[in-house]
Design a protein around this nucleic acid. Structure first.
Length: 636
DNA sequence: TTAGGGTTAG
C-alpha cells in the first residue's frame, strides 16, 4: 500500500479504455511515418497513434524505440499507454523491455509500479535486479534496496560493478556502516575492489560514516583515480570536519595534475567555510573564474555560504543578487548567513522577498533559518508568529523538533523562562539534550536558579559526558548558596571523568592560519603572546574588567582560575593579532567552541580601548564587536 | 538496459 502511494498517476490497466486510445484508431497516419522517425523528432503523441494503428503488429524494436523516448522525456502517461498496449495485445515483453519499464517508472516517481513490473518478471538478469535496487536506493528506501540485494544473491544472480556501486550508496550513515563493511568484503571476494565506480562508492560510504582511515585506505588502494574519486575524498574530509586535510589534499592533487570540476570546487569551499579562511576562499573564487568553469547554481550556493561563514555577508549578498537562477538552497544559505550574523531584520526582509517572488517554495530548513534568525536578532514576537503559522500557512510545513528548539531559544533569550519550560513540557516531541541545554543557558543568563537546577539535573541524566552542564549547574547551586550541592556536582564531574573538547582559536594573517590552543605551548611566538595577554588584562582591569572566574571548569583557587582564563585560546589569538597585524586592522577570530563569557567581555574591552572591530565566529554564530558593544546583545 | 563525488540546517 505504501509503495502504491508513490504512483502519481492512474494505473496502466485504466488506460485500456482511455478515450485517446479509442479515438486514435480513427486517425489516418501517413504511411511514410514510422515510429523511429516520430520518436527521433520528439513526436511522442504521434508515435502513440502509430502504435495504436499497428496493434498486435508492434514488435520489440517498436516498443524499444517508443519506451526509450518515454524514458528520456520522463513521459509517464505515454509510458503507461505503451505498457497498457503490451497487456492488451498479449505481448510478452523480454527482460530488456521489462527493465526499461522499471527504469521509466522509477524516473517518474512510480516506485510501486516499478516493483509490480519487477515482481511479474518470469526471468530476471543482473541488470533488472540492479535497476530495481537502484530505484529503491535513489528514492531513499535503503532497507528495501538491501533486502533486494540479499534476495539477488540468494537467487544465484551474480552482482556486477553497477550493482555494487548502487548498493553501497544505500549503506551511508551509522546504521548502514556495518552492512557497508560486509558488502566491502563481498566486493573483495568478487574482485571488484579496484573498479573506480565501486571504489568511489566505497570511499564515500566510509567517509559519510565518519570512518576516515577506511576511506583513506580505499582511496590509496585504487589503481586509477578520476575527478569523482578525488572529489569524493576531499568532500569526505570536509564533511568530517577535517578541513585542513581536505585543503592539503586538494592542493596536492592539483599539483599532481588533477582536473577539478564544479563539485570539486564546491567541496573545497565547504572546507574553507569550516576554517573561515576568507583569503583562501577568495583565491579559490578567483581560480574558478580564471579556469573558465561555469558558475552554476551549486557553485554559487557554495560561494554564498563560504563568504557569509568567513564573515563577509555583504559579498555573499552580492553573489545572491546576481544569480540568474536560485534554488531553495540559495535562499537558505543567504538566510543562514544573516541569521549567524544576528541580522534578524535582513532575515525577515529576505524571507518576505522569497514569498513575493514565489518561484521557490520555502522548506523546513528555510523555517529553521528564519526562526533562528529571529532568535539571534532578538525578534521573539515575529519568530513566534512565524512558528505558529508554519503548519497552517501556505507552505504547510509541520514543525519538527528543531523548530520547537528554536522557540525554546526565542523564549529563553528574552527571559521568558517559565513559558519556555512549559513549552518544552507540552511539545509533541521528547526533548533532546540540545533543547534542555538551550534552556539551561537561558537560566544562567537570566539567573533563574530554580528552573535551572531542575533542567540541569535532567541534562546530567541524558548527557552525562558534557562538562559544560556540570559547570553551569554547579554555578547555579553556588549562586543559590547551596554549597553542599555545588560540591556534589563537582565531585560527580570528577567521577564521570568528563572530557571537554579542547578549545582552539585561529586567525588568518598574510595567508597563514595561526592556530592557538588553550594555554598554548605550540605557537612560535607563544611567550610574546602570553606576555601581551597579561599586559592587556592589567590595562583592562583599570577600566573595569573583572575576570569571570565561574567560567573555569577546574576546582582550583582564584589565582589559578585567573591564570586559566588568561590562557583561553581566543584571548591568545586576539593578543597575537595586536602584536603581529597592521595597526587598526579588523580582528577576525574563529573559535571551534562557543565563546566563554569572560573572553566575550575581554574582546569588548579590546574593541573599545584599541578602537578595533572584532569579528569573532564561534561554534554557533558571529559576534561583531565595535566600541565595546556586541551584535549578539550579550546573549549567545 | 543497471553505477560513483556536490551546495543550505543540525
Amino acid at each position: 500500500m505504501l509503495l502504491r502511494s508513490f504512483c502519481l498517476y492512474f494505473h496502466v490497466k485504466d488506460l485500456l479504455l482511455s478515450p485517446i486510445y479509442t479515438f486514435s484508431r480513427r486517425i489516418s497516419i501517413s504511411p511514410s511515418s514510422n515510429l523511429k522517425t516520430l520518436c527521433s523528432n520528439g513526436q511522442l503523441n504521434e508515435a502513440l497513434l502509430q502504435m495504436a494503428i499497428l496493434g498486435s503488429e508492434m514488435k520489440f524494436e517498436g516498443y524499444d524505440t517508443i519506451l526509450n523516448q518515454c524514458v528520456s522525456q520522463r513521459a509517464i502517461r505515454e509510458g503507461q499507454r505503451v505498457h497498457a498496449h503490451m497487456i492488451k495485445t498479449c505481448y510478452l515483453p523480454p527482460v530488456y523491455l521489462r527493465t526499461r519499464l522499471i527504469v521509466l517508472y522509477n524516473k517518474c516517481d512510480c516506485l510501486g509500479d516499478a516493483r509490480e513490473v519487477f515482481d511479474e518478471m518470469p526471468l530476471r538478469n543482473v541488470v533488472s535486479w540492479t535497476a530495481m535496487i537502484s530505484a529503491y536506493s535513489q528514492r531513499g528506501f535503503a532497507s528495501q534496496a538491501l533486502n533486494l540485494f540479499v534476495a539477488m544473491l540468494r537467487s544465484g544472480t551474480e552482482p556486477n560493478e553497477f550493482t555494487f556501486a548502487t548498493i553501497l550508496t544505500s549503506c551511508i550513515g551509522s546504521l548502514g556502516f556495518q552492512i557497508g563493511r560486509q558488502i566491502h568484503s563481498i566486493v573483495i571476494k568478487r574482485n571488484y575492489e579496484s573498479h573506480m565506480f565501486v571504489g568511489s562508492s566505497l570511499l564515500d560510504m566510509y567517509a559519510k560514516s565518519g570512518r576516515v582511515h577506511e576511506a583513506h585506505g580505499v582511496f590509496q588502494s585504487l589503481p586509477e583515480r578520476d575527478v569523482v574519486v578525488c572529489t569524493a575524498i576531499i568532500s569526505g574530509y570536509a564533511q568530517m570536519g577535517l578541513d585542513v586535510e581536505a585543503l592539503k589534499l586538494f592542493r596536492q592533487l592539483q599539483s599532481e595534475g588533477m582536473h577539478s570540476n564544479y563539485v570539486t570546487y564546491a567541496s573545497v569551499l565547504t572546507a574553507l567555510s569550516g576554517l573561515a579562511a576568507l583569503n583562501h576562499g577568495k583565491q579559490v573564487h578567483n581560480h574558478v573564474l580564471r579556469s573558465g568553469q561555469s558558475l552554476n547554481v551549486v557553485l554559487l550556493n557554495s560561494l554564498i555560504d563560504m563568504y557569509s561563514k568567513c564573515g563577509n555577508v555583504c559579498y555573499a549578498r552580492r553573489i545572491f543578487d546576481h544569480m540568474s537562477e536560485r534554488t531553495c538552497i540559495s535562499w537558505n544559505a543567504m538566510l543562514v548567513g544573516y541569521s549567524k550574523h544576528g541580522m534578524g531584520g535582513e532575515v525577515l526582509e529576505l524571507f518576505k522577498l522569497m514569498r513575493e517572488e514565489n518561484k521557490v517554495k520555502p522548506d523546513s530548513i528555510t523555517y529553521l533559518a528564519v526562526l533562528s534568525g529571529c532568535s539571534h536578532g532578538q525578534l521573539e514576537h515575529k519568530g513566534l508568529e512565524i512558528f505558529y503559522n508554519m503548519a497552517d500557512g501556505k507552505d504547510g510545513i509541520e514543525p519538527d523538533i528543531e523548530h520547537y528548539g528554536c522557540v525554546v531559544d526565542l523564549l529563553g533569550r528574552v527571559g521568558r523562562i517559565e513559558e519556555a519550560f512549559d513549552f518544552i513540557r507540552k511539545m509533541p516531541y521528547v526533548p533532546t539534550a540540545a533543547i534542555w541545554g538551550s534552556l539551561l543557558g537561558s537560566c544562567r543568563v537570566h539567573s533563574n536558579v530554580d528552573i535551572g537546577i531542575i533542567v540541569g539535573q535532567k541534562l546530567l541524566e541524558i548527557e552525562p559526558e558534557n562538562a559544560g552542564n556540570y559547570v553551569i549547574l554547579s554555578n547555579l547551586h553556588a549562586s543559590a548558596g547551596k554549597w553542599e550541592d555545588m560540591r556534589n556536582i563537582r565531585d560527580l564531574m570528577q567521577e564521570k571523568a568528563v572530557i571537554k573538547e579542547p578549545g582552539r582559536s585561529w586567525v588568518e594573517l598574510d595567508q597563514i592560519v595561526h592556530t592557538f590552543h588553550a594555554s598554548d605551548h605550540t605557537h612560535p611566538r607563544r611567550e610574546e603572546v602570553a606576555r601581551k595577554v597579561k599586559e592587556l588584562a592589567i590595562k583592562f582591569k583599570e577600566e573595569g574588567y573583572v575576570p569571570n572566574l565561574s567560567c573555569v571548569l577546574y576546582d582550583v583557587d582564584e589565582e589559578q582560575k585567573e591564570k586559566v582564563l588568561l590562557g583561553h585560546s581566543e584571548k591568545l589569538a586576539m593578543a597575537f593579532w595586536l602584536i603581529a597585524a597592521p595597526e587598526g586592522a579588523t580582528i577576525r577570530v574563529i573559535k571551534n567552541l562557543r565563546v566563554c563569557v569572560d573572553c566575550h567581555s575581554f574582546a569588548k574591552f579590546v574593541s573599545k580601548l584599541y578602537a578595533r572591530t572584532i569579528i569573532l565566529r564561534d561554534k554557533n554564530r558571529f559576534h561583531n564587536i565595535v566600541g565595546g558593544i556586541c551584535s549578539c546583545g550579550d546573549y549567545w
